[in-house]
Design a protein around this nucleic acid. Structure first.
Lengths: 211, 211
DNA sequence: GTCTATATCCGGATAGAC
DNA sequence: GTCTATCCGGATATAGAC
C-alpha cells in the first residue's frame, strides 16, 4: 500500500519487496556476473543469493536464462545510445574519446570487469543465437561511433593518425577490449599502458604517462 | 602386440587404440574446445564424442577437469617457448613479429578461434586457481617476448614507434587479442583491419592493405 | 586403457500454494 | 511476485569389470 505513489504510472509495476524494481536488480546483478565470470559461468542461484530471493522468483521475471541474456545485451545497447546522446554535446572529438576511455577505466576499477564485447566475443560459440544477434548489433554501434569520432577528431585537428579511420577504429576498440582482459592476468597497470600508448599515438602526447 | 615397436622408448606409453596417443588427442580436442567455447562451456562429453571414447577414459588421463585445464595452459607455454627458439633464428625483428601475427591469422582461419590469453582473461574469475597461475605465466612470457622484439626492431630500424616499448607491447598484444574476438561478432575482415593498422603504424606501410 | 554402471551434484525450469 | 517443492538433464567424478 501506498508504494504505488512512487511509480504508479510506471510501465513496470513494483513488487512486494519494499517497492524495489526486482527486474532491474536482477539485471544489475546479472550484468556484474556476466562481466566478471562470463555467461556460462553464472547461474540463477548466484543472482538469487545476492538479491535474497529464491531461484523461482528470477524465473518469473526472466523465464529462461536466454531471456535474461538478451535483456542484458539490449540494455547495454540502450545505455550506449543514451551515452552517445549525452557526449554528443561535447564539441571536441578527443574529449569524447577520452570519455569513452573513462567507461573502460570504470570497468577496470569495478573489480576488473571485462567489457561486454569481450565477454560476448569470447563465448560467442557457446551463446544462444538470440544473444549473438544482439551482440552483433552492439558491436556494430560501437564501431560506427568510433569511426565517426575519429573522423571528426581528424577534421578538427585534435587527433592525428595515419591510415583509414575504420581500421584505426577497430584497432582502438580491440586494444581496449583486450587490454581489460590482460589486466586481469598481469595487473591493472597493463590497461593504463594501453591507454597511454593509444593517447600518445593519437595526440602526440600521453595523458596517462605519469607512470 | 607389436605396436610397442612404434614408440617403445617413449615416456608416455601408448594405449590400445591403434597406437595413438590418447592423452595428446584429448589435449588437442580440448584445446579446440577451449578456444571455441571457453573453459566453462566444454565438457568431457564433448571430447569423448569427438574421440570416440567414453567419458571415463578421459578421467583416466586427466582425473579432474582442472588437471586438463592446467595441462592445456602448460602446453601452450611449452609450445610458445619452442616457437621462440625457432623464430629467434630469424634476424629481422619485424619478420619475427609478422610470424607472431601469422599465428593469430591461423587462429582466425581455424574456425575463428580466440587466442588462449583472451579466453583465460575473460573467464579468469571462473577458473581454478591453478589455471590462473599458469595463465599469468603464459601472459608474462608473451609480454616479455613482445618487448624484446620491439626493442630489437627499433634498434635495427625495421620498426618505428613512439613511446615506451613496454607500452607498445601491451597495446599490440591487446589489439591482437581483442581483434580476434571482434572478428567473431563483426566478421574476419575486422581482424585484418587491426593487422593493417598495426603494420602501418610500425613500418609506415601496410602489408595487409590490399582491402 | 577403456569399458559399463553408478553416484553425486548443480543448473535450468515448472507447478501450484500463498 | 515470491515462495516451496520437485523434475529433468547434464556434468564431474568414481568403482570395478574386462
Amino acid at each position: 500500500m501506498l508504494k504505488s505513489v512512487v511509480g504508479s504510472l510506471s510501465t513496470r509495476r513494483r513488487g512486494v519487496r519494499g517497492g524495489r524494481d526486482t527486474s532491474e536488480e536482477i539485471l544489475n546483478a546479472a550484468e556484474e556476473l556476466l562481466q566478471r565470470r562470463g555467461y556460462n559461468a553464472f547461474s540463477y542461484h548466484h543472482i538469487a543469493v545476492q538479491l535474497g530471493v529464491r531461484n523461482a522468483a528470477i524465473h518469473y521475471h526472466f523465464p529462461a536464462k536466454e531471456d535474461l541474456g538478451v535483456a542484458l545485451v539490449k540494455r547495454y545497447q540502450q545505455r550506449f545510445q543514451q551515452w552517445i546522446r549525452t557526449t554528443d554535446l561535447v564539441e571536441d572529438a578527443w574529449e569524447r574519446l577520452q570519455a569513452y576511455f573513462k567507461t573502460y577505466i570504470d570497468f577496470l576499477q569495478a573489480d576488473c570487469k571485462c567489457c561486454p564485447g569481450g565477454v560476448l566475443g569470447t563465448e560467442f560459440h557457446a551463446l544462444p543465437e538470440a544473444m549473438r544477434e544482439e551482440a552483433r548489433g552492439l558491436m556494430r554501434e560501437n564501431y560506427e561511433w568510433m569511426i565517426r569520432t575519429l573522423e571528426l577528431g581528424r577534421a578538427q585537428g585534435s587527433m592525428k593518425f595515419s591510415g583509414k579511420s575504420d581500421d584505426k577504429a577497430v584497432e582502438i576498440g580491440a586494444a581496449l577490449q583486450g587490454g581489460l582482459q590482460i589486466a586481469r592476468l598481469a595487473g591493472p597497470e597493463r590497461f593504463h599502458q594501453v591507454l597511454a600508448q593509444l593517447s600518445l599515438e593519437l595526440t602526440g602526447q600521453s595523458s596517462y604517462g605519469a607512470a
